[in-house]
Design a binder for these strands. Structure first.
Ligand code: MN
Ligand code: MN
Ligand code: ZN
Ligand code: ZN
Lengths: 138, 138
DNA sequence: CTAATAATTTATAATGATTCTAAAGTAGTG
DNA sequence: CACTACTTTAGAATCATTATAAATTATTAG
């Protein structure tokens, strides 16, 4: 209820009309304490279960992409066959569980002291991303 | 000439028949001093220029994938829309030049001391990959 | 060497994720 | 309410990759 107002404001202030589809997607993505890592198909499936009214796949693509453009989501490339989006838009690192294909955030404090010694002339460093692949340990 | 013999041996010892297509692709990929980072479409274009006899796209897919399975190539996921392969199959890090989309190897010495403090119970670390995005610095 | 067999290559079709299209619906404005 | 611009939608188009199945080639046995 009150959340809706916040999302409506957020959308309006980004130049996006607060449609019911966008608000529903906002709730799904941003009403969370923890970072949410998801694929388009995750969202589609979740929304299909909460049947009220179906949101078309095209709208989910459109919405997720416009949220990304507005800076509310970040796209993560860890696997060719899955495009992940991330509600944590800061520069941060990840565990990737290769058994479950799940992404887990690493806080910056969790990753010690990355120093890149090499430099390429005429180029500057834009970002540093660490991906730690993990698997069942038994 | 002599290289051919080496590739023929390598292929045979992996249970792959040394066809002329595979040998030609071996030469293109592995007759190099430096690591080669490439896409399927790079290979297809290069081979098309060296016209002798055309190699079909399906064969390039088949060959690159079997070389990957045999451990002669590694696939790198840095960008959804491009699948890179890497002739350096060791665990190593990369610069990604966002202006040219080029991958550049970082030696392990080039990346200082990565320590991951967090652990996930029941999981062990499989690999750690650092991707350093760089761009023109003017 | 030749014939038989199994692997490989190839053109082409199928697939599937994403993007495009254009018509119908909706939100904002006055 | 009436107008306009934006949005949603179903379905089509696209494009990289994978599958298919017929023709070719490499290997093996004789
Ligand atoms: Mn994969
Ligand atoms: Mn990209
Ligand atoms: Zn994250
Ligand atoms: Zn490399």
């Amino acid at each position: 209820m009150d959340n809706n107002t916040i999302f409506i404001e957020k959308l309006r202030s980004s130049g996006l009309r607060p449609t019911k589809q966008r608000i529903k997607i906002c709730k799904l993505l941003f009403n969370r304490k923890k970072t949410f890592h998801f694929t388009i198909s995750d969202i589609f499936k979740i929304l299909k279960k909460q049947t009220y009214e179906k949101i078309s796949l095209a709208t989910i693509y459109n919405t997720v992409h416009s949220f990304k453009e507005k800076g509310y989501l970040k796209e993560i490339s860890v696997d060719r066959e899955k495009s992940y989006f991330d509600t944590n838009t800061s520069n941060h690192h990840h565990f990737l569980d290769v058994n479950t294909n799940e992404l887990i955030d690493l806080k910056n404090e969790d990753v010690h002291n990355i120093k890149i010694k090499k430099r390429i002339p005429g180029k500057k460093i834009n970002s540093i991303e660490v991906l730690v692949k993990i698997e069942n340990s038994n």
